[in-house]
Amino acid sequence: MGTNKQRSRFIDWVNGDTPEKIHEYSYVKKTIPSHTEQAHEEVITPKKARLFDIGYRITAVAVCLVVVSVLLYTVFNLPLFGSPNNPASNEVVERYVEKGLEETGAVNAVAGMILDYRAFDTFGESSVLFIAVGCVMMLLLRDKNNISAEEDALAEKERIIEKEVKDPILQKIVLVVTPCIFMFGIYVVLNGHLSPGGGFSGGAIMGAGLILFAASFGTNSVQRIFNMKTFRGITTIALMCYALSKAYSFFTGANGLETGIPLGIPGAILSSGLILVLDICVGLIVACTMYGFYSLFVRGEI
């Protein structure tokens, strides 16, 4: 009897009469655009429009070819690749490399450069990330004005699926892997002034760990420890901390005062003055931002 039923289901499937629910645990959101019929009906394009389209394509290809050939011509006239005498490696570079260890205390010259000599630039980068999250939040955050009843029902359904469906293999593996990812991220952040890495890469790793956890356990489980409130708190406090500590060092540097922050022994974790603090701030901002992007795109909430 059972096989009979199965066979009939199989025949149905072959004939294309699929039962309504194929996958009980997942569903594909069927968006029926409000303007489908207008959009997909045979549109008789006027001759003018078609000509414009062809003209546009030809112009685009021509413009691209011109740009690429000009750039290629420029490339052949660049200073020789890999030569030590090319104008890019001038006295600024020498100064950064030769005096960097002495002045910033960072073994990693890149970290010393971006977080000490050019720290204002990095502050701008962190602000850009912060503003980007703000913009995405403005566009995607779900509130009363931004959500229809239909979408609300869908989100509710999603929440129920998330609560009921548990994938044991995935969740067990993620439970093992996530702490390792976090540990590696923290290691990269804290060793930013000693080895390759720093706030941006370490923050991105930690953000990836959070995203992995959220993707396998559901956003709700992350919300218990990381919600809108903590997100706001961490990002603003980290940005403020960055701004204040850098303002202090700019103030003292401009007036020729002693900073009073010991540079420590090069190579030790607790060395190189403010760079470690700034690295931690940047790492926190980047981790929060990465997770914020994911969460806003998936759910419209953090």
Binding site: P84, V97, E98, N108, I114
Partner: peptide, 24 residues
């Protein structure tokens, strides 16, 4: 440009500035 063994001569290391620009 990660200083090892205290060698701070600029002729040992590549240019760190483009790296910072790429980060931005």
């Amino acid at each position: 440009p990660i200083i090892v063994n205290g060698v701070t001569d600029a002729s040992n290391y590549i240019n760190p500035i483009p790296t910072g620009l790429v980060l931005t």
